[in-house]
Design a protein around this nucleic acid. Structure first.
Lengths: 335, 335
DNA sequence: ACCGATGTCGATAACGTTCTACATGCGCGT
DNA sequence: ACGCGCATGTAGAACGTTATCGACATCGGT
């Protein structure tokens, strides 16, 4: 279909009057080729614009030099994580490619498993899966999970100290005098979501507050579900005076819903998020949130797969990074 | 290194007591295989978890079934575009992979060319390049540019009606009584940036307003440069009363700078952006901006490459989508 | 019974690369 | 002269897959 297809190693060899083996040596900087021949081959390569076929190289070498990052969607969290991963891969000799399921998680159930099974050991040397639905993979190449699935898993993982962060957020609200504190939880299959809920419950228990179960609703970490849950919560006659959302996206959704219902944040409702997404820092009002070092999580995950791919031994294959509370203007003392 | 490598077609063939050719027929749903054999092979595939090597398939077929999207960075614009592209690819039989240069454009000059030359015809069947620095590619597979580079280019492209949008924005500010209207321009090598500047100039000319050249500064489409430029503009004694930023990211930066300088938006400074990034819609104050249909641009670009890869003829290979002004609260009548 | 058509299946040659093993030529020491 | 090592180059087999083509059996029709 395309007029002139790429030149192959054979074309180069023929044009330079050598064998393909010699050309291969030249492009791989193997020794055993005379300077004159080297120059001649190089000239031909330059002139033809030849570049070795990655596919053929991979088939031969069982190595593609590519690390894949699998995300369910490009949302603020994964975008931030990707930046960390992209930074970490620089200079490692690997390339980074991103696979996105493109939202619609329900239509795509099991997509991670399918992708991994199809790509692993064939198109990529290793992978980072973000907020995965899988717990175990048996395919050839190493896989690191960021914000792993619940359940005992032998997958190497990177996450942050969710329980402590959530407790900090909840205590902050308690310290401000709030008692009716609702929570929007995340995806129930993720460890992070459970831990954040545990942190919330633990902080309430520490303050001898009973948990009103009707105040704990699932928002699935995404905007749409969070809007529905927030509507329900905030329309109640005994609505909460404060809300802890398990991520910033849901916090933002809640603030929007509050606005639509005529509730001012923070005077009528205090809201705390989780993640500290930079784009959302300048929300109206600026969001009080729990920061997790997302970029660094991407960095660590990437460094870990690279080590695993290179066969470097690691003492720890589970990394937990610290979280901290960032107080801005979406929370206020209850009067 | 990894204990048990993936099963190959030969393993399956041996286990099923057939030849590799037959297995190949089974997995490709070719006819000419008896129902009983089909079932037997399928059973073995199921049991071994076999999945054909994409690399070997590609080498053989000269088709990878993968379309690449090259972005310089994951920022709001490209993230939004990716969503459109991801939606369009669904059901096409292709997979989407994203390559990101990971910021640092200056360190990575020419990265698009390098990637394309290495990947094209080898790992990907076609590509979409976003805000490219390249104008021409001669490698095997089709490439579509989104928001193309300036200069006559034979690359198929998708963009939006930048000049009209910019003129609308500028006229809006003029209609509000503003006369000292500054502009933050984008990346000078991109057509979109030039067109937005032209639209700004045209609107001023239509209103018989001379352009104060010292009020037109480059912000390079990115936050960092925009902050510097905005600082310079807004610190002047004869500072502008209104500012048109060539994209939302720069508008946001300008608003932040204004805040730091004690200038209230919109009462002391009106700001208009460009793009209508959803995340920035709930800025404080909500941003007046020119909307371009970013997702649809991603969609169109993806559909175009897919057609090109499939050899489908297209009457038009340059698509321009409409823009419109979205008035929110960052602009106000000058009193 | 015989012939052709049809339906199944397998041997084999690619695809573009790299690596192993071997061939060649040359200089040098004995 | 002869053998030896070294430097340079090449033939050929892999890697895992698929398309072509031919082999063989079966079956229906005459």
């Amino acid at each position: 279909m395309h007029p002139s297809s790429r030149p192959t190693i054979r074309d180069v060899a023929a044009a330079a009057g050598v064998s393909t083996a010699t050309v291969s040596k030249v492009i791989n900087h193997r020794h055993g080729v005379a300077p004159a021949t080297f120059a001649r081959v190089m000239a031909v390569i330059e002139q033809t614009g030849y570049s070795a076929s990655l596919v053929a190289q991979s088939l031969r070498n069982h190595r593609t030099g590519v690390i894949g990052v699998l995300v369910t969607d490009i949302e603020p969290f994964s975008a931030e994580l990707l930046k960390g991963a992209a930074g970490a891969i620089r200079g490692s000799g690997f390339e980074l490619v991103v696979y996105s399921a493109g939202g619609r998680p329900e239509e795509n159930a099991g997509w991670e498993r399918r992708y991994l099974s199809r790509l692993s050991g064939t198109l990529i040397d290793g992978a980072v899966v973000v907020t995965p639905t899988v717990v175990e993979v048996n395919y050839g190449s190493p896989v690191v999970a960021v914000d792993p699935h619940t359940g005992t898993s032998s997958l190497p993982s990177v996450d942050s100290d969710n329980a402590t962060g959530a407790a900090l957020a909840t205590r902050h609200l308690l310290d401000l005098g709030h008692r009716r504190i609702a929570m929007l939880t995340g995806r129930p299959d993720l460890q992070s979501s459970r831990q954040r809920e545990q942190g919330y419950r633990a902080a309430l228990a520490d303050a001898d507050q009973a948990v009103d179960e009707s105040m704990v609703l699932s928002g699935g970490y995404d905007c749409e579900h969070a809007v529905a849950a927030a509507k329900e919560l905030l329309s109640r006659p005994d609505r909460p005076t404060a809300l802890f959302a398990a991520n910033d996206v849901m916090a933002q959704a809640a603030i929007r819903v509050a606005g639509e219902l005529g509730l001012d944040v923070p005077s009528a409702l205090s809201v705390v998020g989780f993640d500290n997404i930079p784009e959302l820092a300048l929300l109206d009002p600026p969001l009080t949130t729990v920061e997790q070092p997302i970029r660094q999580m991407g960095r660590e995950a990437m460094l870990m797969v690279i080590d695993l791919v290179n066969g470097v031994e690691r003492e720890r294959t589970h990394i937990t990074l610290p979280t901290r509370l960032v107080v801005r203007a979406s929370t206020r003392r209850l009067d």
